[in-house]
């Protein structure tokens, strides 16, 4: 039977993720794109748990646990070890949450990116420290409820994509589980490119965002269609917008199912809509210029 994405599953059932977790769908797709010759490095994040308690693993590929601050540094060492053994084939992938990527492990990926280390760094962005019970991170959007921002986060989300681009890396992309073919294609492409590659994956979280677990894929899709999470890739400096709806859906459609946005007043909603539209216009201008 022919399928639009590979059938081989390298993530097994029986893992410890919550019902409707997007990061597990993301891992399935990532490994469909990368294949078996992959070693994963995971810092403290939800995936520390999802990968299984010793001596069990939910993955068919090797996985190393790294401290919060040093996933990218650990991956450099794994890559150097492989090279010393003459293995240039195996992909080393960091699989980190937003807490490690935006905050605690920023220095180690920034160093690896600047040196052009040969690895794929993936941030599955669920916009807070979900594994420890929903504390605000640098990736948490403005106005959002978390355990540490009970009356709404007062700072805008850090623009990680801009920060990455400033490192002149070989490949940067965004990927959404609502678009499996685009997702798998980007990982297969990243596998073939040398140097530092980065993919940011949008990862809706039912308990942390306070929505029913069956809405996970729907929210991932709405984030793309409202312009909250545009799909694009930058290869050797060349920008490509992968999906450009003729007209963006209103932001309110994406916010409505999420309990974490309940405290947002109309004024704040208008402000958020304004910043999404403004960023979308910048991307369209960039698309026109490329």
């Amino acid at each position: 039977m022919k399928t639009s994405i590979p059938q081989e599953e390298l993530l097994r059932s029986g893992h410890q993720a919550c019902q409707g977790c997007a990061s597990t769908v993301a891992m399935r797709y990532a490994l469909k794109g990368l294949g078996r010759r992959t070693i994963i490095v995971v810092p403290a994040c939800c995936w520390t748990v999802i990968s299984g308690a010793a001596p069990n693993s939910s993955l068919d590929v090797p996985l190393l646990h790294a401290p919060f601050a040093s996933a990218a540094a650990t991956a450099c060492g794994v890559k150097a070890g492989l090279q010393a053994r003459g293995d240039e084939e195996t992909t080393v992938m960091v699989w980190a949450g937003d807490g490690s990527t935006y905050d605690i492990g920023l220095q180690s990926w920034s160093g690896a990116a600047e040196r052009g280390e040969d690895m794929l760094y993936v941030c599955y962005d669920n916009e807070a420290y979900m594994n420890t019970g929903v504390q605000r991170s640098g990736a948490t959007p403005m106005g959002v409820w978390t355990m540490t921002t009970p009356d709404g986060n007062r700072r805008p989300k850090k623009d990680l994509d801009a920060l990455l681009e400033a490192h002149h890396i070989s490949y940067a992309a965004t990927a959404s589980i609502a678009y499996p073919e685009d997702f798998v294609r980007k990982f297969a492409k990243a596998r073939a490119i040398k140097g530092f590659r980065f993919i940011r994956v949008f990862s809706p979280c039912p308990p942390g965002w306070k929505y029913d677990p069956d809405k996970t894929v729907d929210l991932a899709r709405l984030a793309v269609l409202t312009g909250v999470f545009p799909l694009y890739e930058i290869e050797a400096g060349a920008f490509r917008l992968n999906l450009a709806p003729a007209k963006l859906k209103p932001l309110a459609e994406y916010l409505a199912p999420q309990g974490r946005y309940k405290g947002l007043d109309p004024e704040a909603l208008a402000r958020e809509q304004g910043s999404v539209t403004e960023r979308w216009q910048r991307l369209l201008a960039r698309k026109a210029a490329s």
């Binding site: 097994r12 029986g14 410890q16 299984g52 069990n56 693993s57 939910s58 068919d60």
Partner: peptide
């Protein structure tokens, strides 16, 4: 000592009880 996990071995864990 079993410090190295067996690949794909979480399948012993029948999560249907969730």
């Amino acid at each position: 000592p079993r410090i190295i996990s067996s690949p794909g071995s979480t399948t012993f864990n029948r999560t249907s009880s969730w």
